[in-house]
Structure formats: C-alpha cells, structure tokens
Design a protein around this nucleic acid. Structure first.
Lengths: 362, 362
DNA sequence: TTGAAAGCGCTAACAA
DNA sequence: TTGTTAGCGCTTTCAA
C-alpha cells in the first residue's frame, strides 16, 4: 500500500521531541542544534551530527506558530491598505513592492490586511495586530481618529501618506505641494496660461496639497487662475475621464484649456481618453501632466511628477524594522516623526508648449 | 507622570488568565465567553457579563499565535510569487487582488512570499509553510521538481498557471491556446496576412501555448506564416520594445508586418512604443493586439485577449479554502485537477483592417 | 556538555 | 454550569 495516498505515517510533522528521541538526546539539545538559539550551552560535534541526521531523516521543520509563542516574534510585518473598487491600484502596488523587498531583505514575511473603508478599521486592525505581526505599515489612511487609542502598545507602526499626525508613529510622505508646484510652474514656463487642475478627492491631504502647489505656482508666476480652475474626484482613470468630460460639457463654447494638471497618473490618462474621444490631440492641442509616475505613466510616456513610491515603501519598512528592534529592547521609541521625500518632474511626451491659436470647446 | 510615555503598566497585554482573575472566574470560562469555542459548557449570563466587562477593562485581545498553536489553524493563506525586476507586475497584481478578496470574504489573512527565482524555491517555500499558513497558492510556478516531494503533507496547495502537473494539486489556468487562436483569427478575418508574434519567454508553458494558438489560427485559415514569424522574450514593456525594434532592424528594407500579436499587454505596449518611435501609427499603419487585459490595456484602449485574472485568483482561493476544510477533517483530498477558464477578445482601438498599400521598413 | 522542568497563551478533555 | 488539568511545540533558565 505504497504511495497512492499520502502515507498516514508522515501525516503528523516531526517535533523537536521526536528528533531528540530519534537521536537519543533531549529535545533541548535538538532545539539548540537546529534552531540556533542563544543558549550558551555548546553542543558536542557528536550530538550535533546525530541531531542533524535525525532531523533529516524525520524531515523535521520548526513550527513557526510554536516558536512565535515563546519568542514573541512572528517575523512578519503587516500592511494595511484599502483596496477599493475592482481596479488594481498601482499607487499601492508600487509601495507594496517596496515593502515586500524591504521585508524580504530582512528575512521577514509580509501579510496584507485589506480594509473596505476606515469605519470599522480600528476594531479589525487591532485584532489583526495581536500575535500575527510584529509591526504595521499603514498605507494612505484616511484616518479620522487617532490610532494610538486602539493600537496595541507593543506594535510599532509606520504610516505612509497619513492624513493626520499619529501619536508615536513615524510617517513618510512625498512632497506633494512641491511636486505640484514644480509641474505647474513648468507648464507656466512653457507659456501655458489656462491650466486646469483635475485633482484627487476632497478629504485627502495629499490631494489638497497638490491643489495648493498648483495655486502657489500661479501666484509665484503672477498668473491668474483660469475660470473654474479646479475639479476634484477619485484618483482613478474613470473619474478622470468623467470629470474631464463633464468639465468640457459645462464649458462648451468657451476657450479650451491649454493644459491639464492631473492629480494622479490614472486621472491624467482618463483625461487624455476624454480628450481623445473629442479628437483633441495631446500634446498638440492640449498638454497633460500626471502625478505619481506609476507604471501607467511609464508605458504611456506621460509627463508626470515622480514620487519615489517604491523607495517610500522600502524605507518605511526599514524604519519599521528598526523600531521593532528597539521596541523589543526598551519601549522608549515612541516619538512621532515625519519624513518628506522629494519629488521630481518626468518630462514624458504629453507636455509641450501651447498652441499658438486658441481653440474653442465643441 | 501621565501619558508622556506609553504607560508601562499596560505594556504587557492582558491574557485570558488575567481576565479570569479580574472577573473572579477561571481562564477557561473567559476563553469560552470571549473566543466562542466548541465547548459544550454553557456559561451563565452572570459569568458572561462579568468576563466581558473584565475583558473590556483590561483591553483583552486574543493572542493569535497562541491560538494557532492549539487550534493548528492560522487563518492565513500564503501566496508565492516571483517578483522579478523593479517593475510592478500587473498580471500578478490582478490575480493577487482576486486572492485578497477571496481570502477576506472568508475571514482569512493573506501573506505574501516572494521568490527571486524558482531555484531554491523548494527549501524556502517549505519553511514558509510550517505553522504560518494553512494553505498555499502558487502563482505561475516554473517548477522543476514535484512540490509534493517537499511540501508538508498537511498544506493544501492550489496553483495558477502552473508549468507542470503537480501531484495532489489543483491548477487553474486560462485557455491560452484558444485565446491566441481567437486573436489571430480575428486579425486574419480583418484581412491581415503578415502577422508577427512577439511572444513571452521560452520555457513558459503559457507563452508556448499562445504560440501554438497563433500557428493553429493560420493553419485553420489556410494562411501561411510570414517570414521569421515568432520572436520571444520576457513578458515586459522593455522586452517588447526592444524585441520589436530589433526585429525591425533585422528586416530593414522588407515589407512591414500588417499586425503584431503580442504575448502580453506589456509586450504589446512596448511594441507600440517602438513603432511610434519610427512614426508608425497604430492601428493605421499596423495593428497591435495584446494578451491579458490588465489595467494597462484598459487605460490604453489596447485590443487584447482577456483572461479573467481576478476571477482566477478568487476562484483559486475558494478552492483552496474548501480543500483546507476537508483536509482538516480527513486527508483524502489529494486528487489533482486542472480547471481551464475561458478567454475572450476585447476590441480596443489598436486593431483595424490592414492598410491597402504595403509599407517598407525604413 | 547535557538534561529536567517550567512556561509562552490558549483550548479541550474530564471532573466536580 | 464551572473549575481543574493537561498539553500544543518550542525556548530558556537552572542544575547536574
């Protein structure tokens, strides 16, 4: 009755005790040999080799759950993110990519925790923390309350693009205001005077800051804002398309903007799609600049503002890991901090000087 | 000395024993009340409320690691994927999205395990399984040996787009051959006779099948393949661009293909980029069709073959979950199976009838 | 250099 | 209805 069914004999995984028995030594010796502990006890080569052999024979593999119970360490970091809609979110993906790499480099696993919204977040995140993870990364939380009230004391947290200051949490973000300022200034330098801003959602601090940068660039250049200069909706392709199209309909018969500064790459591509549907050419008829420099921008040669998303994710992870270390030793690292990473302009192929002849919206 | 530092008194999380003590009952009673167990013992309302109150006061939260140790259940599924290069992989993201949703719907967490390649996969995946996860999803594994030899017996596995049959593992895939056949046939119907295939890497079963579908469509239509009809490289934008450009250089002075059937959306967009760099217009001068229907295709209005990636991920998760159930009861579910999901053509804006006048490669 | 024993926090027998 | 007891697999004192 060989291997037709998985042999029941191996059904149960070998434990350290099994290995010890097999090798004729104690479980403790086996532990010391196999799971390289801090024990001062040194093991004789004799014992060591017998243990190793037995472990091999029994296909021993340590049970991480048990190990976690004693060591109070899961070697896992958690990432909390809202994954709204069915469309993948490249912003999140690039951050996540950075987190994965950072974690992998430190031999840590990463577990993802998805939220449908931030309403019941407190409860759910709190549960999520207990015993499963050693540290937490909060991505772009549109948080209302202060997580410090419900986060377990022991779980170090690093946030990315947090919407508010959180007690005892390090936050990383990119310089949204400066990025928007740069992009808008660049358009102004090129000669654009009528620049529409199709921004991200109201209530998002990042989106707010981009609006501010857009405004400040106009002020700095002494150029007045165009009429109805800012429209805002979600950070998606669909929202971009819809918002652009609506704006054009409302302003039918008026002069076409010379450029669009979009709150994200997805929005920008949505705008381009809406423009293309009206046979408007980018950048010949109108320039479009995005924000983020996600994969989408790179494959479309979209002019955009790069925020170093991967690096943001990776660095957040590294900071988290170091906090996990220190927190383990003494619980004194509870200062807040805010790191701002710089943005830069990516030229792309959707930004050009304005047309000489103005155009009317059909 | 109020709240300047996190109060050391709450440093240590409350345990069931603490709750019991606080409530003046046993830890077991607390357990029964708080972590709704299968114990037949019913708890009096009196006790129940006292426990709940004590738990609240102590901010009790169950330690998942400890719970996992006894229940042999982590409520977590693992996803193994190769995350090569720095570029995010939309194929994976869409699958992953589906997995996350499936897992979340069943109250399971998801942990990601990244591999740099499939060389040392066996060792590393095996370790990953022990005690951390209850089931495993392998995404596009380019496996050499049979994981059944090294996977822990208890860990159910579902694969997506596996490259080989795996003992005791359910595999999900989409109908690559049929998809490629449909796309190519569509181009042939439109009148194209010189269709270049820029495919995915040699060694990928999926890429191989797409080549087969491409060939079979020609046979079925009685149309001979063009000269040097198939070139293959990685599934990326860069590879697509580079491969397309190289092919054009090699065939300088010859007739331009009328259409390109690409092995993935990323490849297709790379091809379009290479063509655009030569001022060739898509689809006016040449049609381009992709494969996958990722976000990239949707935001570029790329003609493509849709494989239901999200659904693939979600369904894989559901199958895995059901296997986890049955496996827990009796270990008899070790049959292999292969589910093939259908593909469909997405028209897009990059596919049109061929030019009337042929064009020469400059 | 090794072993025995205690315990991490929780659950599931079995008694009371 | 409740408490007692005995582990889950591992690590870590402490003694030998």
């Amino acid at each position: 009755m060989a291997e037709t069914l998985p042999s029941r004999s191996h059904q149960k995984a070998a434990t350290l005790a099994d290995v010890g028995r097999e090798a004729g030594v104690s479980a403790m010796a086996a532990s010391a040999v196999l799971n390289g502990s801090k024990t001062t006890a040194r093991i004789s080569d004799e014992t060591r080799s017998r243990v190793l052999e037995a472990a091999e024979r029994l296909r021993y593999r340590p049970d991480e759950a048990a190990r976690a119970l004693t060591s109070r360490r899961m070697n896992t970091i958690g990432v909390v993110a809202t994954l709204l809609g069915s469309e993948p979110n490249l912003y999140f993906l690039e951050l996540f990519n950075g987190v994965l790499r950072g974690a992998a480099a430190a031999g840590q696993n990463t577990t993802v925790f998805t939220l449908d919204g931030w309403d019941d977040a407190a409860q759910r995140i709190a549960r999520f923390c207990d015993g499963r993870i050693d540290g937490l990364i909060l991505v772009a939380p549109m948080l209302e309350d202060d997580p410090a009230t419900w986060l377990p004391r022991h779980t170090p947290v690093v946030s990315i693009h947090a919407n508010r200051e959180i007690a005892g949490v390090v936050n990383l973000e990119s310089d949204d205001e400066a990025g928007a300022f740069q992009a808008t200034s660049r358009l102004l330098e090129l000669g654009h005077r009528r620049i529409l801003h199709v921004g991200g959602p109201v209530g998002s601090t990042g989106a707010d800051r981009r609006v501010q940068g857009y405004r400040r660039a106009h002020e700095a250049a002494g150029v007045p804002l165009m009429q109805d200069p800012v429209v805002r909706d979600a950070y998606t392709f669909e929202a971009g398309r819809h918002t652009m199209e609506s704006w054009l309909q409302v302003h039918r018969g008026e002069e076409l903007p010379q450029a669009v500064f979009a709150g994200s790459d997805a929005i920008a591509l949505g705008c381009i799609d809406a423009l293309a549907a009206r046979d408007l050419r980018v950048p010949a008829d109108i320039s479009v600049v995005g924000f983020d420099d996600t994969l989408l921008a790179r494959t479309s040669r979209l002019a955009t503002v790069r925020q170093p998303l991967q690096q943001l994710g990776r660095q957040a992870t590294e900071i988290l890991l170091s906090r996990m270390e220190t927190r383990a030793e003494n619980a004194l690292t509870s200062t807040s901090a805010n790191l701002v990473l710089p943005t830069e302009i990516v030229a792309g192929a959707t930004m050009a000087p304005p047309r000489t002849a103005p155009q009317v919206i059909g």
